[in-house]
Amino acid sequence: MGLLSLDRRRYWRLADIAVPCVGLALAAGAAMAGTDTTFDTALTMFTDFLEGSGGKIITVLSLAGGIVGLASGRFSLGQIAVPVGVGVGVGTGVPIVTSTITALI
């Protein structure tokens, strides 16, 4: 009898989760990717910032953090690799991500 009551509780917990999920799935509308230009201004401003002076500032700050870490006397490969990765990511990452998103949409 104890095992049977445990199984019933488990099924009721499943129903407590499944019923709202099914309801939300039925009520959801279709998501359309297309010619919506709602965030184009923000996207353009953000990519221009990262590809321009903002990306240079981020790279220099990362490099300065690595130099401070090296000057503190504890050497780590991350203190060199992180600024290089940030510079490469800011310099080439934005165009790669932008072209990938444009290709997928």
Rank of each mutant, 00 (worst) to 15 (best):
P83C: 07
T35I: 02
S99G: 04
G52V: 02
L50R: 04
I58H: 02
C21W: 13
G69F: 02
T37G: 07
T35W: 06
Y11N: 02
F46I: 14
T92R: 10
G69I: 07
A42Q: 12
A28P: 00
G87L: 08
T100I: 11
A31E: 08
E51Y: 02
G93C: 08
G93W: 00
I80P: 04
G23K: 07
I67M: 14
G87Y: 01
A81S: 13
L63C: 10
R74E: 14
L6T: 09
V84S: 05
R10W: 07
G54P: 08
A103G: 01
V86P: 04
G55A: 05
G89M: 11
G85F: 12
A42H: 09
L77T: 11
P83F: 09
T100F: 08
I80L: 15
T44E: 12
D16I: 10
V97M: 10
D48H: 13
S72D: 06
G34K: 03
M1Y: 07
T37W: 05
P20G: 08
T37P: 01
P95C: 05
A18K: 06
R13M: 14
F46A: 15
V88W: 06
C21P: 01
G2H: 07
G85M: 14
D7V: 14
R74F: 05
C21F: 15
F39T: 11
T59C: 09
S5N: 08
F75N: 09
G52D: 01
R13Y: 11
T98I: 03
V97K: 06
L70D: 11
S99H: 11
M32S: 10
I17P: 00
T98Q: 14
W12Q: 13
G65K: 03
L70Q: 07
V88T: 09
A28R: 07
L24I: 12
D40P: 03
A103D: 13
M45N: 10
T102E: 12
G52Y: 04
